[in-house]
Amino acid sequence: MPFADKLVIDGYVLEVDVHFNGKTQLEIIATGMIDLDSGFIDAIFVDPQYMGLGAGKEMLAYLERLAVEAGLSLLKLESTLNAAAFYRKCGFEGDEVSVYQSPRGFNLNCIVMCKKLT
């Protein structure tokens, strides 16, 4: 299934109002997905112009609330190497490096991480 189709079915977006030329429109600034059966978080992306402003943290907090409401006790994800520090600040732990094999044909080193929910 193409990523965009999967996002429409299983994903969430964070939108903000953008004002341009006297018009207001919604713009997607972050995405995220969670499998509420396994607790696996995936596809957290933030538009680069909104990085460092809390959009990723807000998306992750929203996905965690959904997990708690679904009765999950553990979240899992595979972090890109450059995002691991962000996830650690959000309470995730893990150092094991794995290789993510994209359906698009590329491999990406990732860190397997998890977070216990209370």
Rank of each mutant, 00 (worst) to 15 (best):
P103W: 00
L66N: 14
E15P: 15
Y100N: 03
V112A: 15
L14D: 06
F92I: 03
I28K: 05
S79A: 13
I29A: 07
S38N: 10
P48A: 01
E64G: 15
L14W: 06
K23G: 06
K89G: 07
E64Q: 14
P48M: 03
M113S: 03
G32M: 11
K115I: 07
E93M: 07
D35V: 09
E96K: 12
N107F: 07
Q101E: 10
R104W: 09
I111A: 06
K116F: 05
A30I: 05
S79Y: 00
K116H: 13
N107C: 10
P48Q: 05
A70Q: 12
F92P: 12
V46P: 09
D35T: 08
F45S: 07
S98H: 06
L60R: 11
D37W: 03
G56H: 02
D37N: 12
K23L: 12
L108E: 15
Q49S: 13
G71R: 06
V16A: 09
A83L: 08
G54V: 00
M33T: 06
S102G: 12
L77C: 00
L66I: 04
A83V: 07
M51Q: 15
M33D: 04
L72N: 05
C90Q: 15
N21K: 14
G32T: 09
A61H: 04
I41C: 06
L60W: 01
